[in-house]
Design a protein around this nucleic acid. Sequence first.
DNA 1: TTCGTACAATTTGAGGCCGAACGACATCTG
DNA 2: CAGATGTCGTTCGGCCTCAAATTGTACGAA
Lengths: 190, 190
Amino acid sequence: MPGQRSITEAEKLAEAKLGGIPLHREQMAVVANIHRAASAVRQHLENSVLRGADLTWTAFVVLWVVWVWGESETRHVAEEAGISKGTLTGVARTLEGRGLLQRAGHPTDGRLVLLSLTEEGEALMRRLFPAFNEEEAFVAGRLSDEECRSVAEGLRRVVLQVEERGEERRLALLDGAEPAPRRSGRRPRA
Amino acid sequence: MPGQRSITEAEKLAEAKLGGIPLHREQMAVVANIHRAASAVRQHLENSVLRGADLTWTAFVVLWVVWVWGESETRHVAEEAGISKGTLTGVARTLEGRGLLQRAGHPTDGRLVLLSLTEEGEALMRRLFPAFNEEEAFVAGRLSDEECRSVAEGLRRVVLQVEERGEERRLALLDGAEPAPRRSGRRPRA
DNA sequence: TTCGTACAATTTGAGGCCGAACGACATCTG
DNA sequence: CAGATGTCGTTCGGCCTCAAATTGTACGAA
């Protein structure tokens, strides 16, 4: 099993590389496993239920959000789907082109755009979601309901920590230094 | 807090949408939280320690793998970093261009390519990793060491389930049907 | 020794991804 | 009621991402 042995093994190697500087082992392992699990789960779901419908993970998440919450403003959809506004614009365009999603202007605020599923999109989700949820159950199959709750609760605390203290922490780390702009991204016109 | 309330709320809405079809609630919540946590952690680390070094998450992971394991064949690096071989080719090219990574042919098997850090890459990791690990500790700050171990263990079981049973499961689901090729990707030349 | 099979990394095409810049609109303030 | 200020969604540049097709190398069998 490469999986777990690697992490334990890697800890020792990393510690050796640092020559005695102490390492936050448990915290390192939990972060590593979060990402391992996320990518394993995503890959399984993409290759089982999503592939047949020619949907990517992100496209499915966006459809799911709009399906569950009903017609919504794009900023809320992006927030809920965990992607940036810019990414959502592209994904929504793709889904609109496939006839699964609709776009409408807000009646009173001209800046807003509302997203909703088409009838075809609704039908797709009614068909797809049960299969999706079944695979969620599969990937969590080695955990009892109680263990699922406990792991979910632990993860929730990680999310809360970043949401509530992350920004402040990042500012403290920079401590006055310039925010170090991303090297990629759009350039000023001048 | 949009975070947790949304998931609980969403469960009810999704259940309503399905009109009585039972839902695997705990499993759905654990999968949702895995992805929330992964993206929150990634974003925090990119915007705190990685941004200043102009490294993306993936680039850092690749450097980390090569740093910890030493000179390695690309297929192992891709596997360990959780990305496809094709993605690694591009990322390695970028890092090579920045003088952080080296590429060398295998002495006896001409098909293999070996990756290793340059001296500059080594120096970067010696400087960067302690800061990275410090932020891993920060994001896990609301969990005790024991809770970290327990969450990590739960996640490990999810990874194992997918690694050991995933393929078989996907085959069973298709059950003879064609594997439904990805719509994007390279086309045959003919 | 040449063929076939196996396996390596790379190329390719379509799309996801971020954050800064941008233009359109809304809303406050004088 | 005009200008300043703020907030929307979109555009844009540079990467990442995948899997299939491709190219190149290795190695066993005929």
